[in-house]
Amino acid sequence: MQHIAPSRKAFLVANYAFLCLLAVSCVLPLVYVLAMSFSSSSAAAGGLVTLWPVGFTTKSYEYILEKPAFSQAFLVTLERVALGTAVNMFLSILTAYPLSKESTQFKPRTFYAWVFVFTILFSGGLIPWYVTIQWTGINDTIWALILPGAVPVFNIILLLNFFRKLPRELEESAFIDGAGHWTTLIRIFVPLSMPAMATIMLLTIVTHWNSWFDGLILMNKPEHYPLSTYLQTIMTQMNLTTLTAEQMEDLANVSDRTAKAAQLFLGALPILLVYPFLQRFFVTGIVMGSVKE
């Protein structure tokens, strides 16, 4: 039995209590949305639902199953995440590798680095962005959601810094054994950078999952909307100050909170599940003991 000083004990108790509260505050909104999705529509509109469904019903979920829009948008998002992550990862690795070299090895390195940094510092603005994508003719296709953000500069900087921290000796020994740049990249750098890869992969997946504005502006048909855009279009409250005779019929939707909650929950679930699966790659000390100095 190890002795723990009272002050240490107090710290531990306070610390755990704080962390528990933090965790609870993250989980509660999700529980609320879940409870809402299983509640009766009037109870939800009356604000009577807190953490447990009121007037339990699975109607919202039946409604979603019947409605093609949700599953359609879900498929678009899956496609976007799969393609987008593949393209992003491929280009990030390819760009980070040369940029991680010293200027003595790769002379125009500084120039290229600035070209990339420039795009972080200055943005063309919405209209040029839109017009450029329009010219390429990829509007209203899945590529409009992927190619404009194909080179995530922030991720590249993360990755190149990770590459730079890897022991130089490993690279040199690979070259001595006759490996070229490609082999070194694929067989030494990539396997050793799993933690960094997992990080940027997570960032990429989350970004693609959550982006909604590009879907709204670049897609010309609601059937092509990714999930976040679709959710955005159903969550925005309509303007009640100027309601026309025809819009009165829309009022039934205003209190459709339970269906909205159900769709929100189903939309958030997959992305929550990604975290535990990527967690096993977040290991440190992967290169420990590989080099003796």
């Binding site: 048909k221 609601p222 909307y225 955005q232 279009t233 925005t236 309509m238 303007n239």
Partner: peptide, 9 residues
């Protein structure tokens, strides 16, 4: 093109 959602969108 068609836009789903509200007038704002």
């Amino acid at each position: 093109w068609t836009v789903a959602g509200t007038e704002d969108q």
